[in-house]
Structure formats: C-alpha cells, structure tokens
Design a protein around this nucleic acid. Structure first.
Lengths: 185, 185
DNA sequence: AAGATATATATCAAAATGATATAGGGGTAT
DNA sequence: ATACCCCTATATCATTTTGATATATATCTT
C-alpha cells in the first residue's frame, strides 16, 4: 500500500500532522504498520501538491511550525477509488500483501549459534516487549495530543483490527512461555 | 538484520543457490522473513568478495549457470560474532526488531470505505490465503530440489520458529471467523 | 496451442529505511 | 547543578530494498 494512501486513510478521520501520523502508527497501530519520517513527510508534501490535502501552518514558539494536514474532497474520492481498486492486492501475502520481516524469528531460527544463557535473556526480553506492545494496542484512554485519530482507534474497524493484533501477540507470548525450554535447557 | 547475515545463517545449514534461499524464505519460512532477488543476489556477490562464502558454477544446459554458494570458516566466525553482538537489537520491535507492514490490517482499518460485499470477499480470500500459508509452513515432506535446508527446517530451532508462526496464523484465522460479522452485516 | 508454473540469474528506477540535524522544554538521577 | 534522556516537530540523505522486467527453456494444465 502506498505511503500516500495510508496517510490519506488516516487523515480521513481528521486533520493531523506528520508527527501525529507517526505517533498513531507507533501507538494504537503498533504491530500493524510502521513508516519512517523519511517516507511520511515527502508523502504529505506530494499530496499537498496534488491537492489531495491542504496544509495550515501553526507557528510555535521556539519549535518548528506545526503543519496540520486536512484531506480535501478530491482526496477522499481518490482514497476511496484507490482502496477499492487495489483491495485485492492487499489480501494475499508474498510480494503483495503483508511484508514480513521478523528479525526476532530469524534470531530464534539461528539461535543454535547462541549461548543458552543469551537465549534465555532474549526470550525474557521479548515477552516483556510483547506485553508492552499489547499495552500500546489495547490502551483505551484519551490521547491528549490528538483528538481526531481517537475516532479511528475506537471505530468498529479500529477495534476489530487492534483486537486481531492483540490476540496474535497473546498467542505468541503464550507459545514462547510454554515451548521455550526446547531452545535452552 | 542485514540481508548478508541472513544469507550466511541459511548457508550455515549447507550450500545453496540464491534461488534456493528465496524458495526457503517463501516456503517453510513463509510469514517469517522475505527478501527479493534484488537484495539476495547482490548480498551473495558481496559475501563472495569478502571471502565469507565460496561459489561453484554448475553449467546447465540452456539455463543460466547454477551458482552454488558455500560458507567458509571465516564466514561462520563472522556470522556467529555478528549474531551474538547484535542479538539484543532483534528482540524489540520499532525501529529495530520486526518490521511490520500489514497491508491487510490497514485494509481492514479502512474498510468503512468499502462496500460490505467486498469486505466479505476479502475476508473469505484472506482465510483461504492464510490456510495456504499454514500448509507451506507446516509441510513436513521432502524438498526435492534441496537437501541442505531441510536440516534447518527440521531442527529444534526450525520447529520452534515455524510452530510459533503456525499458531499465530491459526489465531488470526479463528479471530476473523468469529468476529467478521462486526465488519459486514 | 496457449498459458501458467518452475528453474535460475541479473538489473534498475523508484521507494523506504535509519540515522542525523536542528531546537527547545521538561523530568530525574547522581 | 548538570548531565542525560525523552517529548515535540520537521527535514534531509546515503544506503538499502522493493517490485518489475529481461532472458531462456522445460513441464504441466486448460
């Protein structure tokens, strides 16, 4: 899915800055999709040029101007047409669909080359890390810095998607806890 | 994790071609990690220059020469040192750790913009696709074209990692089946 | 007979990452 | 106190990766 389409989809829930888009991706949408600033900011500039979004600069004392992006009608049409036209591509994994790069799984696969004590520590850390991710995804409290993307997080679709990821993480934690002895001991 | 380190890790189980490395990533290591030929072939060339692997060309009638890569002692040392030194990086997600890009999850998140009938079809297709992935991961039969990477697939580490991914996929299928009505109906 | 799938390597424009720069505020640990 | 880290906020860029395409043939399917 193109970065610009993802930005439009998120902006459909309300105006936001590039920084907020990144924050949502790292918070409630943790484990779903991640993008670097190096792709978010150019995408927002491109969308502005193409009139799919408008931008309003808010001067801030001693901080860079906050650039709040708002999706236009033209942007909404473009987003909905693109999503419908390309929805088939996003279902299957492989070249299209989910891009899977689990460095943790590769580490486990190669863990024969690691001292047992290190493996224990790695698994302990991973469980902790996964529990923290779970907290980020399932967090229901208010997001002070942003009132717009709350709506997306709490929508039926947001709840379904976050619930799916939460179940997946719980399964992984449980699997590691019950099977870890096979990798050390 | 650098592509070259992943190639070395896989070659540690036995000599292989770039094509076989890609096949393993798409077969038994499906949903764990994926790499394109455009990064595998340059990585193997680089590793050859650095003497971490050796290459033997097998002329094939009317096909490109098969280039079989074998890890060197130097390569094994480099791999084990790198893995140990960087293992901490691969535990946590975020900038380091797993790179998550689930286009399917984003599609679900944005599915308010899609006709209900399309959503039904997308979920049906996804379940089918996930079941096929499960078959690829859990396949236990012989891999005719390659006898080396069998060992990695069937090792304790291989079974653990593939088992983890299989459980995760089963959880996802089950979640979609029991909750899908929230997205259409 | 046409089309898809499999074997096998290679290249490359376009896209994305990961790091860094800039710049100040607030918290906190030694 | 002052060193250190995290938060807000945008921007840039070398390096890496993707996704597509080219090349060439055999085999299986429709």
């Amino acid at each position: 899915m193109q970065t610009s389409v993802i930005c439009l989809g998120l902006l459909r829930s309300g105006p936001a800055t590039g920084y907020v888009i990144k924050s949502v991706l790292e918070g409630p949408l943790n484990q779903i999709y991640n993008l670097s600033f190096g792709s978010i900011y150019p995408a927002l500039s491109k969308l502005t040029k193409e009139k799919y979004v408008t931008v309003k600069q808010h001067a801030q004392d001693k901080k860079p101007d906050k650039k709040v992006y708002t999706i236009t009608k033209r942007g909404i049409s473009y987003f909905e047409e693109t999503l419908l036209a390309e929805s088939g591509k996003y279902v299957r994994s492989g070249n299209y669909g989910d891009q899977i790069k689990s460095e943790f799984a590769m580490l486990l696969l190669f863990s024969k080359s690691l001292p047992k004590q290190n493996i224990k520590l790695i698994l302990d850390e991973r469980i902790l890390s996964a529990q923290q991710q779970l907290n980020l995804i399932t967090y229901e409290g208010p997001i002070a810095k942003d009132s717009n993307l709350n709506a997306l997080r709490n929508s039926v679709q947001g709840r379904f998607t976050r619930g799916l990821m939460a179940e997946v993480i719980k399964t992984a934690i449980n699997y590691i806890e019950t099977n870890r002895k096979k990798l050390h001991d």
